[in-house]
């Protein structure tokens, strides 16, 4: 059981974003995708839950081929996957508590009396105790992001996809969220896919790291392997030295 993306192609109009993207994510591991802004990391992540459909290629989640599933099966698959959006994507007509509880209400096997407790627990995990009755507009960007994270973990999904969960947070909160991601993985066996630009976080939380470059995975390996990579593109990126990447176009 795992997530497997095989030779995924996806273009928006003329613009090809994914050009044969392949990545396998083992169960119970946390894999981080790194790559430049606009390289297609969010696009790749959205393919896993069927928010975008590939022009070509296959995406397997467990034994389901996401790109072939009918609508109802996609919804069933999504109950196993939590998604943390890059910009939180909270429902602004609902309170934070309602946002976090929304996924739970959709789960037929979760008793509705249990929802408030679970919501509180999740808000506590992301350090938002007491914010349940606020509206998203009354929260700061970082707080919203954490609320989005709470919403994704509330249903205790088997997979959680984090799209830049710590971007824009202060170092202490970043550490708290990193800790949370690690705990989700270690204590609950959650399989995580993280997109992050924060290299310190990346190497702290990841079992494996994959670099997306020019529509394909340029290199994939353990944090140590990536840090020791001799590919100038990878080195240039993680060390923040654009001069290394210049002229290296494949």
């Amino acid at each position: 059981m795992s997530i497997k993306m095989v030779n995924v192609h996806r273009a928006f109009g003329e613009k090809e974003v994914l050009k044969g993207f392949s990545l396998e994510i083992q169960d119970g591991t946390t894999t981080t995708i790194i790559g430049g802004s606009g390289s297609g990391k969010s696009v790749a992540l959205k393919h896993i839950v069927g928010l975008l459909r590939p022009d070509e290629g296959n995406i397997w989640v467990d034994e389901d081929n996401v790109s072939r599933l009918d609508q109802e099966s996609v919804y069933r698959l999504r109950q196993r996957v939590g998604y943390v959006f890059q910009f939180a994507a909270l429902f602004d007509s609902m309170t934070i508590a309602e946002n976090v509880g929304l996924g739970l209400r959709r789960m037929s096997d979760f008793p509705s009396e249990g929802i408030p407790d679970r919501v509180e627990e999740c808000l506590h995990l992301v350090d938002l105790d007491g914010y349940g009755e606020r509206l998203p507009s009354q929260l700061s960007g970082g707080q919203r992001k954490r609320a989005g994270l709470a919403r994704a973990i509330a249903t205790k999904p088997k997979y959680i996809l984090y799209d830049e969960p710590t971007t824009g947070l202060d170092p202490v909160t970043t550490a708290v969220i990193d800790e949370l991601i690690v705990r989700m993985s270690e204590e609950l066996g959650v399989t995580g896919v993280v997109i992050s630009h924060d290299m310190k976080s990346v190497f702290r939380i990841s079992d494996r790291v994959a670099m997306l470059y020019d529509g394909v995975i340029r290199e994939e390996g353990t944090p140590d392997q990536i840090q020791g990579s001799d590919d100038p593109i990878v080195r240039g990126f993680i060390e923040g030295r654009p001069e290394l990447m210049e002229g290296q176009q494949t």
Binding site: V49, L51, Y75, R78, V81, G82, F85, F91, R106
Partner: peptide, 18 residues
Amino acid sequence: GTMRVTEQIDALETLAYD
């Protein structure tokens, strides 16, 4: 439209809401 551009509709989808 606002829900669309702020990905709230995508969020609904990921929470298994049609």
